[in-house]
Structure formats: structure tokens, C-alpha cells
Design a protein around this nucleic acid. Structure first.
Lengths: 336, 336
DNA sequence: TTGAAAGCGCTAACAA
DNA sequence: TTGTTAGCGCTTTCAA
């Protein structure tokens, strides 16, 4: 690799002139600019990002931290983020916390040490959980998907309450009254919001939900399966199920299949989050899908806005909540 | 952040002694070692990875480059890699080439500039495609999943030929003779291997495959769908389908569903690669699954072995091919 | 066993 | 408009 020195020598100027030319060309004479450009081209120069990072105290890396990278939602999200980052000449460091706050803390420390220019964080733990390690972050960051009390920051997420409201309303309109809710992990922002939307819409419709069939399935396929087994074999079984996530819906569907309970003839099923296998399952599941590309683009933009702002700029905090889209499938029908 | 200077001052030694203590403690007097350790503890010192990278010419970052990060196979793979990397105190930069060789070239250049300590690469393009940009890599790297002619390197992958052989044999044993193969993108290593295993097993069984029903579905759901539509509506339709990947199987199943062709009553379906939705699809699809954790662990180990080897060490190249596992489902049965 | 000093490649304040 | 110079924080000769 050639260094700034090689370019300077070949162009017959000092290294600071080369640096100046590359960083603020308008402050350099046109003729000099040309000479430097030619020399740089000739030796195939490109600045060493590590030296730049050391000097500037900031690298051209972005951190993306999520609770479970195998969730297809985050896979798609990551792909978009990476695309935007590359366009802005940044690389993306990805880290998976496995929903463990101590992992999150360790990872953020590593990212800080690497002087990443910004962080996209899907925080783990309950909304009211510890957040000092986030609040103390010295670089720009944007929270997404999961909100956290006590952290003043940009936030991008889908309207989780609206997602379950849409599904609930759809089921009520079809004539369902006894609707079960397979919730996400209690205490998590998205889980609480999704439950809230469900309960509010039920109440508004004059058929308040029966607490006995509003359960916690922990955003987890196994719990989705087990809870559905319990609900569908118990007394007074529901005529419809709303799953708070794609993996829960997966478990629920499996349970119904195994019990020989036909969907939608005997039970309607709707879920939140897109599922890559939606097209292949018969019947196709009715889902409220999050606008992943929009979420990722917005998060990128908010982060880049802060990264590229001149130091000292004060930028108002943005909270962007995007509406989900309901995709009707054959899994929801009038109750028997 | 405190620097090495702060530690030196507090411990009453020079900065080189601090560095020595941290890097090669055995070369430092016990008493000095203690003083330095205490001082470091007291000021909460931790070495700046960027300064280390600049000096050492090597960062504690690992690059992982794949063609499509949304593929669940790579999602799982990444998760494992990230876990192993963290254990070795490395962060992972992830990049998606979208199967474009020019992206791959650009990304490898970026990773080289970041002085990553190693790269895990699932190379894109045909086996005989350009590979200069890979061969010229100055840091350790391991290819995985997809092999490349002309690159002498460690390689980790599943036995792709065996995967389709197993499925083919299973179908033949059930009595199928007219078996269609929905192949991956022509020219790609995995695609050719999977096809080869199919053809070899067919030939060995004395019922050579009909070229008319050995098609290219390009590792793509849409092509899987379209090719299946064509095959199943054409003359002399096959009694069984083998899909070269999970997404192809997805498309094939969708096509059969839409055509009203019952599986396995009217057609058997088997595929390569695990599918997260396997449990939910009725019937459960027979698959040959790659041992993802083993693949990822092996790749990590091979890479780390090179990264941690003293400079100048010659390490023989390893090619590790792991056997897939066949998981029988209800999607394969005797032909009608 | 420890310290002084050079320097990795770059940026930026300051001087010319 | 350009050059000199002092570092960013660390590792690593080399000398003491």
C-alpha cells in the first residue's frame, strides 16, 4: 500500500498539502490539486482508514446490535442497513446480544473502543430496564424496534399497537368474540404495545378480552406451540388466535395442525410480522407486516444525519413510528 | 478514556513497561507487574484497539462476506461466527455482495483497508470465475459453502453431492423413477455438486435422469415456482421433485398448492437445506440439512488457527467437507 | 529488567 | 496557498 508520503513525493508537495487536497480541495490551488490527484492516481493511493480513525477519533464503521440475528426481520433490516452504509462508505459491525443485557453492555463497550461513527441498536430487556450504558454512549445512535424509557434518542419503529388493532378489528368484523392473544415477552416494549392494541380494540368493540386467554408466549416458537395446545384443548376454546410475532404464529399453527383443528374452519389465525414462508402455508396467514425497508432507510437516515452533522450541531430528537400493512390471507374467516 | 500514559504515571514506570506488562508479562518483574496491574485497574485502562491496529498493522476485526444475508442458512451461520469471534475478542464486519462480483471486490478492498485479521468468505460467481482479488488477499481467509477453482485456501462446506444423493436414493427406494431436479444457478459450485449427486445416483440406480426434467431454478423462489409450474403441467409429469435449496422448495410447494396437486399423494417433494418453517408446512418436507453449527465452528477454528499462528508459520491447507443429515418428512411417499 | 525514542499514517494548528 | 511540526496511542527496537 502506498502512503500519503509517496503521493507527496511524486507530486512534489508536502504531505499536508496532499491531505488538504483530499479533504478540502477548495483550499488548494487548482494546479496543485491536479498534480496531487495525478500522483495519487499513479501510485494507487487510498488513505489508511485506521490512521484516519486514530487521528480523528472516529472510524468509518457503524455498529448494528440486535437481540437475535436469525430473526428474518433483522436479517432483512441488516441487509438494508448494510446497503445504505456502503453507499455512505461505511462498513457494518453486527452483533447479537441473545437478549442478554450483559452482552449488550459488553458489545457497546467494544463498539465504543472501535470508535464507530454510529450505532443502530435494538435494545434488549424491559422498557424500564437499565439504560445507563446506552445513555452514556459518546457517539450518535438510533434505537429501533424496541423503545426504552429513560433514553432520549432518535427512535424508529413500527406502530405495534396499530398492528394488533388492525388484526383484532378484522377478526371482530368477521364475527369473532372469543379471541385469544398469544403475546410476546412481558415487559418488552413491542410486546406491551401489541397487547395494548389488542385489549383496546377489544374493549372498544364492547367484548372485553377474557384474561384467561391473553397469554405470554415469549416471542418464542415453543411457547407459542405450548400455549396454543393449552388454549385449544381447554374449556371454552377461542374461535380465533392472534400471535404477537411470526415465530409464535409458527408454533400456534403447528399446534393446531397436530390437534387436527382446521384453520380457518375451526379457528382463525392472524399474526404480526411477515413470515418468509407465508406463501407456502395453506391457508396463507393473515398478517400485519412491518415496513422493513422504510424502517431501515429511516433509521439509516437519522443516524447519518447525526454522523455527518458538524460537531456541536444540535439536532432535535426524532421518533418515527411507521404504520404496518395488513395482508389478508385465508387463515381468517367467520367463526363456525 | 485513560491512556497508557495515565497508567505509567500512576504506576511510576515508563509507558513501554506498561505495554510490556500487558503484552508479555513474563518479561517483567513480578513487583512491577503488580504495580502496573493495580494502576491499570485503578484508572480503568483498556488499550485503544485503533492505536494497536495502526502500530501492528492488524485489527481485531473479522470480515464475513456472503451473497445474501437474508438466507436463513447464513443468518444462523453468522450468529455462530459472531459468537466464536466474541469469545476470541473479535468483532465481525458483515457484508452482503448480492451475488455481484464487483461488490465482492469492493468489499474485500474495504476489509483489507481496515486491516481485518481474517475473512470468512462465501465467494460469489461460478467456480471458474475471477479470483485474483481473493488470491491476493494479504490476510488469512477461509472460503465456505462455495468453492472456487484456482484459490488455494482452507475450505469448509457441506457434502452437496451427498445431500442430493441421499434424497435421490430415498425417492428411488420408495419406487420413484421419474424424478425431476430443480437445480441451483448453473456454474455455481454448490449447484453443480448437488446436480452431480443427483445424476450419479440416478445413473447408478439404472434409471438415468431425463434431461428434460433436470432444470435450472437459479436458487430462487420465483424460478422454483415457475419451473415447477412448467414441469407439473407438461406432458409425462414427474412423480417426485428434488429442490436444490430451501427457497426453491418453497416455490415448488407453492406451485403444487396452486395447481391443486397433492403432496405426497400425487407428487413427492424433497429439498436441500433446512427451512425454518419446516414444522409448519403440511406435509413436513423431507430435507437434507447442512450441519450449520459444525460448519461455522470449523470455519472459525480454521481461521483462528491462522490468525493466531506466529508470523511465518506454514499451515497446510484444509478442506473440510461435512456430511449433511437427512430428515424424513411426510412430503415423500410411494408414487401413486 | 526497564526506559528512551522512533514511528505506524494521518490531520490540523500554526507559520511562512 | 503551502509547508513545518506536533501529536493521536500504541509497540518495539535498542541501550542502559
Amino acid at each position: 500500500m502506498s502512503t500519503i508520503r509517496d503521493v507527496a513525493r511524486l507530486a512534489g508537495v508536502s504531505i499536508s498539502t496532499v491531505s488538504l487536497t483530499l479533504n478540502t480541495p477548495e483550499r488548494v490551488a487548482t494546479e496543485t490539486r491536479r498534480k496531487v490527484a495525478e500522483a495519487a492516481e499513479a501510485v494507487g493511493y487510498s488513505a489508511d482508514p485506521i490512521a484516519q480513525s486514530l487521528k480523528r477519533g472516529r472510524s468509518r464503521l457503524i455498529g448494528m446490535v440486535v437481540s437475535d440475528i436469525t430473526n428474518p426481520f433483522f436479517g432483512r433490516f441488516l441487509q438494508e442497513i448494510e446497503r445504505h452504509a456502503m453507499a455512505a462508505d461505511h462498513l457494518v459491525i453486527v452483533s447479537d446480544t441473545s437478549s442478554q443485557i450483559r452482552n449488550e453492555i459488553a458489545i457497546l463497550r467494544h463498539l465504543a473502543a472501535q470508535r464507530v461513527s454510529g450505532i443502530l441498536l435494538q435494545p434488549t430487556g424491559p422498557m424500564t430496564g437499565p439504560s445507563d450504558h446506552i445513555r452514556q454512549l459518546s457517539m450518535p445512535f438510533v434505537l429501533f424496534d424496541h423503545r426504552l424509557d429513560g433514553v432520549e434518542s432518535d427512535f424508529v419503529g413500527a406502530d405495534n399497537a396499530l398492528a394488533s388493532s388492525m388484526l383484532t378489528e378484522h377478526l371482530i368484523r368477521l364475527g369473532h368474540r372469543r379471541i385469544a392473544f398469544l403475546g410476546g415477552t412481558s415487559g418488552l416494549y413491542t410486546a406491551e404495545e401489541r397487547k395494548r392494541g389488542f385489549l383496546a380494540t377489544m374493549a372498544a368493540s364492547g367484548v372485553p378480552a377474557d384474561p384467561a386467554i391473553v397469554v405470554d408466549a415469549r416471542y418464542d416458537g415453543r411457547h407459542g406451540y405450548e400455549q396454543t395446545m393449552r388454549l385449544m384443548t381447554g374449556p371454552d376454546r377461542p374461535t380465533a388466535l392472534i400471535a404477537a410475532s411470526n415465530v409464535i404464529a409458527l408454533g400456534a399453527l403447528q399446534a393446531c395442525n397436530e390437534l387436527g383443528i382446521a384453520c380457518p374452519a375451526e379457528v382463525s389465525l392472524a399474526g404480526i410480522d411477515d413470515v418468509p414462508w407465508a406463501a407456502v402455508v395453506q391457508p396463507r396467514i393473515t398478517t400485519a407486516v412491518q415496513p422493513i425497508e422504510d424502517l431501515a432507510r429511516t433509521a439509516s437516515e437519522l443516524l447519518m444525519r447525526r454522523i455527518t452533522a458538524p460537531p456541536g450541531t444540535v439536532i432535535d430528537r426524532s421518533e418515527i413510528i411507521l404504520a404496518p400493512e395488513i395482508r389478508l390471507g385465508g387463515s381468517t374467516a367467520r367463526p363456525a
